Amino acid sequence: MADVMKNDRSWKNIPPAGSSKREDMPAHVFLDPKNKRYPYKKYVDGKWKVSCAGLLAAYRRAIMNKDSEIANKARSLAIQYKCPWANK
Rank of each mutant, 00 (worst) to 15 (best):
M1C: 07
A2Q: 14
D3N: 14
D3S: 12
V4R: 15
V4P: 10
M5H: 06
K6G: 00
K6M: 07
K6I: 10
D8A: 09
R9F: 02
S10E: 12
S10K: 13
S10Y: 11
S10V: 04
S10M: 03
K12D: 02
N13T: 01
P15E: 11
P16N: 06
P16C: 00
A17P: 00
S19Y: 07
S20G: 00
K21N: 05
K21R: 12
K21Y: 07
R22G: 00
R22A: 01
P26R: 13
P26Q: 09
A27M: 07
A27R: 15
H28I: 03
H28D: 13
H28N: 13
V29F: 04
F30K: 14
L31I: 04
L31P: 01
D32T: 05
D32Q: 13
D32I: 04
P33K: 06
K34T: 02
N35Y: 07
N35H: 13
N35M: 05
N35I: 00
K36W: 07
R37M: 01
Y38K: 04
P39F: 01
K41R: 15
K42A: 03
Y43I: 01
V44M: 05
V44K: 14
D45M: 10
D45L: 11
G46D: 09
G46R: 11
G46S: 07
K47C: 00
K47F: 08
K47Q: 11
W48K: 07
W48D: 10
K49L: 02
K49D: 03
K49S: 05
V50H: 08
A53T: 08
G54K: 04
G54P: 04
L55P: 05
L56Q: 13
A57K: 15
A58P: 10
A58C: 08
Y59R: 09
Y59I: 05
Y59H: 15
Y59L: 06
R60E: 11
R61Q: 14
I63K: 15
I63H: 15
M64A: 10
N65M: 11
N65D: 10
K66F: 06
K66D: 11
S68I: 11
S68A: 12
S68E: 12
S68F: 10
E69M: 11
I70W: 14
A71W: 07
A71M: 08
A71P: 06
N72P: 01
K73S: 03
K73D: 01
K73G: 00
A74E: 11
A74P: 13
A74M: 13
R75G: 00
R75T: 01
R75C: 01
A78S: 12
I79Q: 12
I79Y: 05
I79E: 13
Q80C: 02
Q80Y: 14
Y81T: 05
K82G: 02
K82F: 07
C83F: 09
P84R: 08
P84A: 05
W85L: 06
N87E: 05
N87S: 06
N87H: 06
